[in-house]
Design a protein around this nucleic acid. Structure first.
Lengths: 210, 210
DNA sequence: AAACTCTGTTTCCAATAGTGAACCGACCCA
DNA sequence: TGGGTCGGTTCACTATTGGAAACAGAGTTT
């Protein structure tokens, strides 16, 4: 063995890097994912556009897929790299929580303009905040300023008709069944325009990351 | 193919991923990293064991590196995949996006058990995935296996009545206006128990960090 | 300027990835 | 038993990658 090699090995070790290109357990991983979804090679071929034979060889570590191939894989299978790489992936199981809220049984928070009913408020530590709102406001002037909060908001009209004012757009008229998704740090405000007060369902993300 | 698969496919599409292989901006990214460290191609060659020429071609998108090559890159440069993939720095300080979906105008994804209508699917990169579902299933047996996916789910019954089966609890009967929040990696399945097919609104979190 | 050096690109070729077709069980089903 | 299908592997061939060396451009030095 040429001295050169030892040199490099020494350097490599000294630099605290992984020995070398690791065994590439990508094949096993792929197979695992495939089987756990009960996909056949043909299924995966359809989804990814890669040949059945190619997939077989990848799974058996007979070839090292091209990066475009990897891309086709992650696109086609709807997974992301981490998922492909992390070996067995023991999920952090925050499993099995649930929180039921019967119609009208939420926690009420009245304000002059809105009457909120918080849903699923037994559950702490959740990543979304759902609430039903009766929109009392009838004109934009009733708001002293824009409503805004970090994150994103999804909203669907359950009853009546509303007008949605937003900071950067023209007002929008929404009827029952219409829905909208928007960045909630953009100023927004709702008013009822129907005979009766409108009712909307909103779901906000919790601003705090991850 | 199990119903679960269609579920996931629908979710995948909803999550705003690009349909197929994107332009592969990996070259630009590599160059960016290299320059920001003031490395020459030769330096990188030393570190990674890849030929200078190869590196040049990768940076100019003239070839799609083999996965082993990519591994050598991430090992040699001491970076991780995400770093290599995150598009050239576009930190989404997104503000003021919005996406309106009128009643019935969502993207339909029928499955044997559910008929999904994805809402706000114009908007990519969002943290929640809202969709309306007509629950066709009438009995638990129609599901070949539990539906499950990373993250959390909020659900409200819009019309009809459903029974919610979950892996760890007794089935729950939900009527119009009732809502529930649960960890969606707990197996779950919905069936209609009303005269007509029930309709529910669901909002899922996107599990994957980016 | 010529000679040298340091950079990144291009060329050419050997090595290897990707493909369709053939092949091989295993499992129906009559 | 003799077809049929279905899932996966292997084969033969083509397309593409990866490496050594040659090339090209921009400074430096003399």
């Amino acid at each position: 063995m040429p001295a050169n090699t030892d040199q490099q090995a020494a350097l490599r070790i000294a630099s605290g890097r992984k020995p070398f290109v690791e065994p590439l357990r990508l094949g096993e991983r792929l197979k695992e994912i495939r089987l756990s979804n009960q996909w056949t090679l043909e299924d995966v071929s359809q989804r990814t556009g890669l040949a059945r034979s190619t997939l077989s060889k990848i799974e058996n570590n007979q070839i090292s897929p091209t990066f475009t191939a990897v891309q086709k894989l992650i696109n086609g299978l709807g997974i992301d790299l981490p998922q492909l790489l992390t070996p067995p992936k023991v999920q952090t199981r925050t499993m099995g929580r649930r929180d039921l809220t019967r119609q009208g049984e939420g926690e009420r928070h009245p304000t002059p303009t809105y009457e909120h009913e918080l849903l699923s408020c037994e559950l702490a530590q959740k990543r979304m905040i759902p609430f039903k709102t009766i929109v009392r406001a009838r004109s934009f002037e009733e708001f002293s300023e824009w409503v805004r909060h970090d994150g994103e908001e999804f909203l669907m009209v359950l009853e009546g008709e509303i007008r949605l004012y937003t900071e950067f757009y023209e007002p929008l008229q929404l009827s029952r069944g219409d829905s909208i998704y928007f960045d909630s740090d953009m100023g927004h405000a709702l008013v009822s325009v129907s005979e009766d007060d409108a009712v909307v369902l909103s779901v906000c993300t919790r601003g705090d990351a991850v």
